[in-house]
Every structure is written in structure tokens, then in C-alpha cells.
Design a protein around this nucleic acid. Sequence first.
DNA 1: CCAAATAGGACTGCATTGGTTCTGTATAGT
DNA 2: ACTATACAGAACCAATGCAGTCCTATTTGG
Lengths: 148, 148
Amino acid sequence: MLRIAKLTDYATVLMVRMAREPGCCFSAAQLADELGVPQPTVAKLLKHLLRAQLLASARGVGGGYSLALAPHAISVADVVGAIEGPLALTECARGKGNCSLERGCATRTNWQLINRALRVALQAVSLADMARPQLQPIHVQALQEKMP
Amino acid sequence: MLRIAKLTDYATVLMVRMAREPGCCFSAAQLADELGVPQPTVAKLLKHLLRAQLLASARGVGGGYSLALAPHAISVADVVGAIEGPLALTECARGKGNCSLERGCATRTNWQLINRALRVALQAVSLADMARPQLQPIHVQALQEKMP
DNA sequence: CCAAATAGGACTGCATTGGTTCTGTATAGT
DNA sequence: ACTATACAGAACCAATGCAGTCCTATTTGG
């Protein structure tokens, strides 16, 4: 599968929605209503995104959330990272003795490279891009064909 | 996070191990012992890989598993797909009415493109590559900078 | 016939995830 | 100052999925 969490999916939809009107201030209730996702869930996501400093918030009557940066300055990787934590495909990709294999594992460094390729791919797409109707294809050019 | 399952990780290690001696026939017990992973778990993985036709098997005394194709003809995407099913980052990426948003979701087609980029990245790396000590970096070239 | 090995299940404990609820705090308007 | 609105943060719960085990065939070499 290799899926992102459903909540992460929601989060991107939220962010893209806000990216369409970057200046605006949106309340959790308003966004929840607009997207058809339950209000508490939306609220939770917004809190996460706030703590990741992707959003700014205003309390009180007439308050709400707005993007902390310009839409082109926030990447999909940022949003995914805010909800799911740092991207690490494999156990060993984030160090520590989490993997029972560890030393002598021939695939470790190679996985890290794959890992990085994915991160770059997600970083290459901004909210501004996602807000457009149709993104241009992302080309992945693997260099292993050029290897000796 | 965006992690692959631990079992999938094991599976790649198994496959890479076998890719080092492509002709050989390995028993589940032998591989389990060699990698330090419990035998029943290894056996289960090998069965999955077999059903995905990435391995060939021989029963009976002296039997075991061997790669069904040459190491360069099996990609990491194949192995991941064999264990986790088809790659689909988002709910909507594999059609059906799984997503509550569905119509009117502005991010759908864009996610599909990201999805494809990841698939290509995983397909670009073969077992032969993984068996080498150090893979060359994989370059991801995003074209959205060239967009109008 | 027996032992080694795969084939294919069903089953279980546990961790993660999706989602809710509650209490607290700040703010605008009256 | 009071009140309604809205965010802040933590605790909590149910359900799904995953890691791992076990059991019962079936095949095959000696």
C-alpha cells in the first residue's frame, strides 16, 4: 500500500483550500462545514499544523487560522511531516537500534537514498501547485542506468 | 512517517540476500537463521513473494526458494507491491468511493501525479542495485518550476 | 515409509489510527 | 464586566490493521 494516513490527506485538502485565499482567516467550524469532515477532527488537524508553524491563529470571536507562509513556500512534505512526523520509510532510516538487523544490513544505505528521493519529490510540490487544477507530471530520473 | 511495513522491509532484505546468489535455492529456515528473523515470519513472507511470482519454489527434501527472474529485472516496487498490495498514497488513488470528499476534491488528480512519481522512483531501483554496496543518488526533477 | 520442506489457512495480542470529549484561555462586542 | 465565540491542549476510547504464531495438508528425496 504505502499510504499516507487519512488524516494527512484531510490536512492537505485543508491547506490547499486555505491556499486559494491566502490572506483569509478560516475558523475550524467553517472549514469542517465546507469540506464535510467532522468539526473536532478538523480542529485537531489545525492544531497540529499550527504547532508545526505552517499556520497562524487568532483566538476569540472572529478568530481562526490562516497560512503562516505564502502558498508556494509550503510543500506537501511540510504538511505530511506536520501530521505524521519526519519521513522515514524504513525503521533504520531514523537511526537508533530500532531494527533487529542493524549491522551487516546491506540494504540500509540504499533505503536511505530511496527515502531521500521520496522526500525531494514531496518537497518539490507546493500548496500553490496543488491549488492549480492540474499539476505538471513529476519526472523521476534514476541514475542507476548510468552506473558502471 | 510514511513508513513501509516492517515485514516489507524484511522482504527486501530477503530478496537482496537471494539476489547475491541468483542461481541458489534457499530454504526458509536457512534464510531465517542467516538474517536473525524468526522462521515462521520468513516463511510467511516467502509465500507472499511466491504468489506474486517473484520467487520460484521447490518442495520436498532439498527444496526451497529461488528468484523467479534475474536480480536486475525485479524492482523494489515489485517487492513492496507483493507484500503491501498496489501502491496508493491516498484513498482516492485507487478509485472507488472510499473518500468522503470525492467530487469537488481539488487535490485528487495532483495526488495521483505525486503517487506516480513515487512509483517510478521505486521501480527505478532493482534488486541488483540494492545488492551493491552503495547506490548512486536518485535524482528527482520536479517540473513545476518550469510551469507558467 | 519417513523426514524435510513448502502451501495455505486460521488465529491472537498489540500498536497505531481515527475520532471524540473535556477543561482551559483568549478576545470581540455589548 | 459579561457573554458568546473560538482556539489550546490533553486525555480518552473504539476499531482497524499488523506482526507473529500455529496447525494441517501436500510434495519429494532417500
